[in-house]
């Protein structure tokens, strides 16, 4: 009887110890994983920041103006090239269907 009790006690204590050690080992393993993920996140953030800076450089007004002028031959419209489109009545009061989008200017040629 005593022998059985001692065996049960030993097994129980060993089990508890093993569970405790397993838990600790798992915490450490997850710590490593977390560290690796944080490094990945930092790398992605770094890449995002770099791309955002590049986008910002590419969409700078100076560059857009130069690209539009040099490559596409665009330039600001002259006074006679701007045509104002009269407004339609507010939507809901007209029976001619949906209101067309408001245009402020259009190219009329030189």
């Amino acid at each position: 009887m005593k022998w059985v009790l001692w065996t049960l006690l030993t097994v129980s204590v060993s089990g508890v110890l093993l569970f405790y050690v397993w838990g600790k080992v798992d915490v450490v393993r997850l710590g490593y994983e977390l560290d690796a993920l944080l490094k990945k996140k930092a790398a992605f953030t770094q890449e995002h920041d770099r791309l955002q800076a590049r986008l910002s450089q590419l969409t700078a007004p100076e560059r857009l103006a130069s690209e539009a002028g040099d490559k596409l031959g665009m330039r600001p419209p002259g006074a006679k090239q701007v045509v104002l489109v009269p407004s339609r009545p507010e939507s809901g009061t007209s029976s001619d269907g949906p209101e067309p989008p408001l245009r402020l200017a259009r190219q009329t040629g030189d």
Partner: peptide, 22 residues
């Protein structure tokens, strides 16, 4: 001239009312 066009401030008082929505 360029800033007014960018801000859609149309020339003439009447026309300006048209443009004010955008």
């Amino acid at each position: 001239e360029q800033a007014l066009r960018y801000l859609s401030v149309a020339p003439g008082e009447e026309a300006r009312m048209v443009a004010s929505r955008s």
